[in-house]
Write a protein that binds this DNA or RNA. Structure first.
Length: 462
RNA sequence: CGGGACGUGGCGCAGUCUGGUAGCGCACCUCGUUCGGGACGAGGGGGUCGGUGGUUCGAAUCCACUCGUCCCGACCA
């Protein structure tokens, strides 16, 4: 690609690396709201509406506007990269599934159990279909149809797809929608020992995934259902407005993975053990004796579930006939696990964990733009020239930047930029330019520096 | 699914009790003065009150039904 295609003029640019468009705000569809729509109660819902990220279509179903969709894709991409990093392979399964996959006799047998939460549809031939609330049946059928030998396992596959659960009571905006974007992964192994290896990969991968988003997620033992054992964990992040009460050892609160460079083919059990050996429990799993023993090390807080992994053995492989032949020529029903991350929910969860009275405070990794340029006086030639130059320069260096070039008052620009929560604000006005300075404001700390335009731009390149 | 609310220009609300064909703030458009944390003045556009059916001379207001949305609870990524 010729370089001229990358460094162009006034209409924003696509970085060849990220394919994320920087933007002049005068051309961007960013319908911010000064007042909160009355239906929004919690912070993330309020702020997502006010920041022009989403609009509601019907109860629990939302459209994603440019700003919101950009964040959603950033989160999705982090999830994708971390799944790929453990050898989990991306596929894409349909949203609409044939009911036979779920019915007794022809499928898993949970068609009747699932209840009205599953959206059932008939096609024109009067065949029963459904909008998938999850994909265990589908992936198992795919695997079963082609896997023959023990050499075909282990396998890890995932997809990132919209799901639908017809919640009785959708609420909290995107956090508890009926339609939601979810990463769900599935593991296929020859036996439980191998299954644990797959489970551990996911466990550690999840810790890394959330950490990359600027979150501390705490794994907590969850109900294992009919299988039993210790192979089901929910991952929760702490937020004052969280949906459930949790209790854990205080070491979890800011815990980071000690080893950044993990060998996923090595033994992950010690890492998993280092997490699971410490106390952490959701409301229904709390153990008061254990908590008493912790004394001052106990922390109680509120949490939001952002992931759930579990191992379910042959629950689906058996009815759907996912069988391979082992080295002795014996038929083995494969052992499976499934591993979910609520991608769209994470957008709301991150906001719950990171906002203030003025708006959202995006962690760097998921911020829709790295920086915003505020032109304090759009009518001033010198000021506009300085802003244009800074914008074009940052673009050419690959910095994703939102340039507020609108001809509105400064106050409105400050308010909008704080609301949408980009990490850095480059504030340029005629007054500062007289002494060749601009203001660089850091959204999360609130710190402002009066520095030269050049050094401000240099800082944004880091 | 139980309990509770609400539905009036894009957003936030008043008007409903005590029927007389719609109002305020913000936003929007024009002009002028402004312009470093959501300006000021003047002028202007936009709604027939979620829908349907009743009562009435007359309904945003009363009655019935219906649709939608939100909140609490049970349930869940």
């Amino acid at each position: 690609m010729p370089s001229s295609a990358r460094t162009h003029t006034r209409s924003g640019i696509c970085s060849p690396l990220t394919n994320e468009a920087s933007m002049r705000l005068s051309r961007y569809f960013l319908p911010t709201l000064r007042e909160t729509p009355s239906e929004a109660e919690i912070a993330s819902h309020r702020l997502m509406l006010r920041a022009g990220m989403i609009r509601q279509s019907s109860a629990g179903i939302y459209s994603w506007l440019p700003l919101g969709y950009k964040v959603l894709r950033k989160i999705e991409q982090i999830v994708r990269e971390e799944q790929n990093a453990i050898g989990c392979q991306e596929i894409l399964m349909p949203t609409i599934q044939p009911a036979d996959l779920w019915k007794e006799g022809t499928g898993s047998g949970r068609y009747d159990d699932y209840g009205p939460e599953m959206l059932r549809i008939k096609d024109r031939h009067d065949r029963d279909m459904l909008y998938g609330p999850t994909n265990e049946e589908q992936i198992t059928e795919i695997f079963a149809a082609s896997a023959r030998s023990y050499r075909d396992v282990p396998k890890l596959m995932y997809h990132i797809q919209w799901k639908f659960r017809d919640e009785v009571r959708p609420r909290f905006g995107i956090m508890r929608g009926r339609e939601f974007l979810m990463k769900d992964a599935y593991s296929f192994d020859l036996n439980a020992t191998a299954g644990r290896i797959s489970y551990n990969k996911m466990f550690v991968s999840y810790l890394r995934t959330y950490e990359r988003m600027g979150l501390t997620a705490i794994p907590m033992a969850a109900d294992t259902g009919p299988i039993g054992g210790d192979m089901s964990h929910e991952f929760l992040i702490l937020a004052d407005t969280g949906e459930s009460e949790i209790a854990c050892h205080k070491d979890f609160v800011d815990r980071k993975l000690a080893d950044k460079d993990i060998d996923f083919d090595g033994d992950l059990q010690p890492i998993v053990d280092s997490y699971t050996s410490q106390y952490a429990a959701t409301d229904e799993k709390r153990d008061l004796d254990a908590e008493k023993a912790l004394g001052d090390d106990l922390v109680t807080a509120r949490g939001i579930e952002v992931g759930h992994i579990f191992y379910f053995g042959t629950k689906y492989s058996k009815p759907l006939g996912a069988v391979v032949t082992d080295s002795d020529g014996k038929e083995i029903t494969v052992e499976m696990g499934s591993y979910g991350i609520g991608v769209s929910r994470l957008v709301g969860a991150i906001i719950e964990a990171s906002h203030d009275d003025d708006g959202i405070i995006w962690p760097d990794a998921v911020a829709p733009f790295k920086a915003g340029i505020i032109n304090l006086k759009a009518g001033d030639d010198a000021c506009t020239q300085a802003c244009d130059d800074a914008y074009n320069n940052l673009l050419s260096k690959g910095v994703d930047v939102l340039y507020d070039d609108r001809n509105t008052r400064a106050g409105a620009k400050f308010a909008d930029m704080d609301l949408i929560g980009v990490p850095w604000q480059l504030i340029i006005g005629p007054r500062g330019l007289k002494s060749r300075t601009v203001e660089l404001k850091h959204r999360s700390s609130g710190e402002r520096e009066e520095i030269s335009l050049e050094s401000a731009q240099t800082q944004l390149l880091v």
